[in-house]
Nucleic acid binder design. Structure first.
Length: 425
RNA sequence: GUGGGAAUAGCUCAACUGGCAGAGCACCGGACUGUGGCUCCGGCGGUUGCGGGUUCGAUUCCCGUUUCCCACCCCA
């Protein structure tokens, strides 16, 4: 039997109803904040991710689905393409390619699949779905303002609350400008030098390759050492410090709770200043439900003009997992199930179904070969509100037996009255 | 990529130290000719993930492999 490839899965009904419910709510919230949708290709030049996300990141170094395209001619080498492992780089590429700075501040959102060649576990898939947004534009359009950071965070709090996700935590940090980070990195390396030997093997490796990641260490024995290391907050320049303070002030003003976490670092190279993560307890080790931050230098790194930006990506799979809403409760059930009874009744049923559907009713129907009992069982199973019996007697009389399944109340209703009657709750 | 656990009917799970592969739910039919849910009766459903090995005999033991789960790495 051919199965879905490792780390991929089918989303089946009724789960798809829950996904659509989430996406509809998301679109609704984005609309309120004047975000507009963007759709970028599902694969891009490998170079985009190498330059945008960073050669040294795990994502680029070992988690991409990459292949060599064929050239136009036999002799052409063809270019290296990659299934997108995230969507920010693609959006910024589109920003540059279509000169979107002419539109001032761009507030864009996307919903779609991303691909990473990781080992699957709970809440982690090789094809997973992200809901994300990017606010990007020239600084003159206000793209750099702490008001944008706060707006994004407030939007996210609104969205999670709206979806009924209880118990989320917003963790917030500023990782400064690249210049701030250079100073911090130097200090960190200096502080680590004498103590590295006492730390776990992972930390010894991190101390050399990416000292920031030492803060991710979960080994208990290392914690006292880590506690004494310098923090990024001590190295923030005046502008980063003021920017971060204002973000916090706005959040307090609008009443979005957050906790400062100066050990929060982001894995992608393009992040600057504000960095954040929303976590949820019900997700096991993959407790990050969404993450994001500022990327003021990304556009330039991709060969575009200066275009500060901030964005986030929600793991839709994880978001759905942390919801308490059941898929069944959000699925729209048929208003009426039509039961044709006896030879020739499929035609009458089809005519009635067409009429009722024009009134925006959800209509399903059986088959004239079904015994009535079977039609009732089918109507019950799909959760229909009414069953409408279409037999010879009804057609002759021009009035039909309409039964409310929950109450058992049954009436004979004239054809012209049916839609009106069913529309009532 | 590293370490550990698991895989038996559509789903959730049984099957003693190796001895005829089962239950509940679901599905189909009947009891009940045009009236459902409840009940009762019957039926369908399996290469025990896949491939090898040991054995008279393997769901059970061994090896390999695939997938899932848990953790690490990292991230959404």
């Amino acid at each position: 039997m051919i199965k879905a490839p490792r780390g991929t899965r089918d989303l089946l009904p009724p789960d798809t109803a829950l996904w659509n419910f989430v996406e509809a709510a998301v679109r609704d919230v984005f609309r309120a904040y004047n975000f507009q949708e963007i759709r970028t290709p599902i694969f891009e030049s490998t170079e985009l991710f190498a330059r945008g996300v960073g050669e040294e990141t795990d994502i680029v170094a070992k988690e991409m689905f990459t292949w060599e395209d064929r050239g136009r001619a036999e002799s052409d080498k063809g270019q290296s393409l990659t299934l997108r492992p995230e969507n920010t780089a693609g959006v910024v590429r589109a920003y540059i390619e279509h000169k979107l700075w002419d539109r001032g501040l761009n507030k864009l959102f996307y919903i779609g699949p991303q691909f990473r060649r990781e080992r699957p576990q709970k809440g982690r898939f090789r094809q997973f779905y992200q809901i994300g947004a990017e606010v990007i534009g020239p600084a003159s359009a206000g793209s750099e303002s702490p008001a944008r950071d706060a707006e994004i965070l407030e939007l996210l709090a609104t969205l999670l609350d709206r979806l009924g996700i209880a118990g989320w935590t917003l963790e917030l940090n500023s990782i400064g400008t690249p210049e701030d980070r250079v100073k911090f990195n130097d200090a960190l390396r200096q502080a680590l030098e004498p103590v590295t030997a006492q730390m776990c093997s992972d930390c010894q490796r991190r101390a050399i390759t990416n000292p920031l990641r030492v803060f991710d260490c979960k080994v208990p024995e290392d914690q006292p050492i880590i506690e004494k290391l310098p923090r990024i907050s001590q190295f923030l320049g005046e502008s980063s410090r003021a920017h971060f303070a204002e973000v916090q002030e706005i959040l307090k003003t609008v009443g979005v709770p957050f906790t400062l976490n100066d050990r929060l670092v982001r894995g992608l190279d393009y992040y600057t200043r504000t960095a954040f993560e929303f976590t949820h307890g019900a997700l096991g080790a993959q407790n990050a439900i969404l993450g994001g931050g500022r990327y003021d230098g990304l556009s330039e790194a991709l060969g575009g003009p200066a275009a500060p930006g901030i964005g986030f990506a929600i793991g839709e799979d994880r978001l759905v997992m942390s919801m308490t809403e059941s898929a069944d409760s959000v699925a729209r059930k048929p208003d009426v199930y039509i039961a044709p009874l006896g030879a020739g009744m499929n035609r009458e049923a089809a005519r009635l179904a067409r009429e009722l559907r024009r009134h925006d009713l959800v209509v399903d129907l059986g088959d004239e070969s079904f015994r009535l009992k079977k039609s009732f069982e089918a109507a019950d199973k799909m959760g229909a509100r009414y069953i409408l019996i279409v037999g010879e007697n009804e057609v002759k009389a021009g009035a039909f037996a309409l039964k409310h399944l929950a109450s058992g109340e049954q009436n004979t209703i004239a054809r012209g009255e049916l839609a009106h009657r069913i529309l009532q709750p």
